[in-house]
Amino acid sequence: MANEMELDRYLNILKSTESNNECPVKCTLEIIGGRWKLRILLQLLKKEVSRFNKLKREIPGITNTMLSNSLHELEESRLIQRIQYNEMPVRVEYSLTDYGKSLLPLFYEIAAWWNNYSH
């Protein structure tokens, strides 16, 4: 949990932004938000390295197109890395970058908030 000094610092950041476009929460949610990105990130946190078809099996309801688009956006955001091996057939693996791994404390805080909220 954030201490009072950290909360005050964050409130000052929010107050100093001139528009909602600069809000750090809004910007973060634009990067990790949506129906599929969070699920992909959580799967990669659990498995560390995964291939496309494995991710597809682990995320019920996602289409190939949505998985492909979401992976591409997460890669552009530098949260995941895509490694292609020059083998036949071609093997591609996805994993979290250090930026992606740095989301773990955020996910922990969200889970803790949910536990408090849901009880």
Rank of each mutant, 00 (worst) to 15 (best):
W113F: 14
R35E: 15
H72D: 14
S50V: 01
V49R: 14
N20L: 13
N12V: 05
K15A: 15
L67C: 04
L11I: 10
A2G: 00
R51D: 02
L104N: 05
K46Q: 07
H119C: 07
L71W: 06
K46W: 02
R82H: 04
S118I: 15
L29E: 07
R91E: 09
P89V: 10
Q81L: 12
A2E: 11
E58K: 05
K46H: 05
K56R: 13
K15R: 14
E75R: 12
L7M: 14
Q81M: 13
L38G: 14
A111F: 03
W113I: 01
K101T: 03
L44V: 02
T63N: 04
G33N: 10
E76A: 11
P24S: 07
Y117I: 03
S70E: 12
T97F: 02
N116A: 08
V25M: 09
V49A: 04
L67G: 03
E4Y: 05
P60K: 11
M88A: 08
I13D: 03
L74I: 09
S70N: 13
R35P: 00
I110A: 15
S95M: 07
C27N: 14
E75W: 00
T63V: 01
R9D: 12
L74G: 07
A111M: 06
S77K: 10
R57I: 02
W36P: 04
N69M: 11
R39P: 03
S95G: 05
K26D: 01
L67Q: 04
Y85K: 13
I40Q: 06
I83V: 13
W113Y: 13
E6F: 01
E109P: 01
N20I: 14
I80M: 05
E109I: 07
E30K: 13
A111Q: 08
L55K: 01
I80V: 14
K56W: 02
L71A: 04
S118W: 05
R35D: 11
F107M: 12
K101G: 04
W113C: 06
T63M: 03
R91Q: 12
E76K: 15
E73D: 14
L42R: 14
M66Q: 13
N86P: 04
M5W: 10
N21C: 09
D8R: 14
L96E: 01
E87L: 14
E4G: 04
L38T: 10
R57C: 02
Q84E: 15
P105V: 11
I110Y: 08
H119Y: 08
V25W: 03
S19Y: 05
V92A: 01
L104H: 10
T17I: 15
Q81E: 14
P60Q: 03
L11F: 11
E18P: 01
Y10P: 00
I80R: 01
I40N: 05
L29I: 07
I32K: 04
G34R: 06
I59V: 06
Q43I: 02
N3F: 07
V90P: 09
L79N: 06
R82N: 09
K101P: 04
L41E: 02
V49K: 13
N86Y: 08
